[in-house]
C-alpha cells in the first residue's frame, strides 16, 4: 500500500481552496467540473488507439507521426495538453516509459497515473534495471529483444504501441482493444492472448 494521506492534509487543502475562493479566483463548480473531466480519461482510449493501429495502416501512420492529432481524432481534446508521442515496439525492440524526475504520463489518453508509476522505486530502477522491473510484472522478453527505456523528461508525453500478439488474426477492434492494458501502454507488460479473452 502507498502511504495514506495525512489527516491534516485535506484540512490544509480546504484552507487553500477556501482562500482562493475568497479572493474570487475559483469556484466549487469549476473544481467539480475539472475533476469530472479528468475522471473521464482512461486507458481505454489508448487501448482503442492501439487496436486501430493494428488494423488500419493509415491510422497507424497518423498515430506514429502525430499522436496528438490521433488523440483528437478519437474525440480527446488535446488543447493545451502536452504533445503525445507514440513509440512503436519492433520485433527486436521493446519500449518502457518512465519519468525519473517527476511523473510525466500521457494522462489525456491513459487517465490518472497509477501509484507505482510515481513511486520512487519505479523512477529509480526503470532506467537502470529495466529487465528487473519487467520481471516483477512477469514480463520476460524473447531472446534478442532490446529494451529502450524512455525517460519522459520534458514536453512530450509518451505511450507505447506494442506488437500485436500472435493468435489474434481476424479479431475485431473491440476484441483487440480489450487485450491492450494500461501496463502494456506504459511498457511494463505485453498484450496477452489469454484463454479468457479468446473465449470472448
Amino acid at each position: 500500500m502507498s502511504a495514506p494521506t495525512r489527516p491534516d492534509s485535506p484540512v490544509r487543502l480546504e484552507a487553500l481552496i477556501g482562500a482562493l475562493k475568497g479572493r474570487g479566483i475559483l469556484t466549487e463548480d469549476e473544481l467539480t467540473a475539472r475533476q469530472a473531466q479528468t475522471d473521464c480519461a482512461s486507458p481505454e482510449i489508448g487501448a482503442r488507439m492501439v487496436a486501430r493501429a493494428w488494423l488500419d495502416p493509415e491510422w497507424r501512420r497518423l498515430l506514429l507521426s502525430d499522436g496528438s492529432a490521433a488523440a483528437e481524432a478519437m474525440g480527446v481534446s488535446m488543447a493545451g495538453a502536452p504533445p503525445l508521442g507514440v513509440l512503436e515496439d519492433m520485433p527486436r525492440r521493446h519500449h518502457l516509459v518512465v519519468c525519473t524526475l517527476c511523473s510525466c504520463y500521457p494522462r489525456a489518453v491513459l487517465g490518472y497515473p497509477p501509484h507505482w508509476y510515481k513511486s520512487f522505486a519505479y523512477r529509480a530502477r526503470a532506467v537502470r534495471d529495466p529487465r528487473g522491473v519487467l520481471a516483477e510484472w512477469g514480463t520476460v522478453l524473447p531472446k534478442g529483444v532490446e529494451v529502450r527505456v524512455v525517460d519522459s523528461t520534458a514536453d512530450y508525453r509518451w505511450m507505447v504501441l506494442p506488437l500485436r500478439p500472435e493468435g489474434t488474426d481476424g479479431w475485431s477492434e473491440d476484441r483487440l482493444a480489450a487485450i491492450v492494458t494500461r501496463d502494456a501502454l506504459v511498457g511494463v507488460a505485453l498484450p496477452q492472448v489469454t484463454p479468457r479473452t479468446v473465449a470472448v
Binding site: M1, S2, T5, S9, P10, L13, L16, I17, L20, L26, L31, T32, R34, Q35, T38, D39, Y112, P114, H115, W116, S119, F120, A121, Y122, R123, A124, R125, R128, D129, V133, E136
Partner: peptide, 23 residues
Amino acid sequence: FRCTAVERDEAPPDDFGKRVDAL
C-alpha cells in the same frame, strides 16, 4: 531504491488526490 520492489498499488487517487489534481 535498487533493491526496493515496485509497489503494485492499483488504487485510484483518493478524493484528496483528485481534488488536489483538479486544483
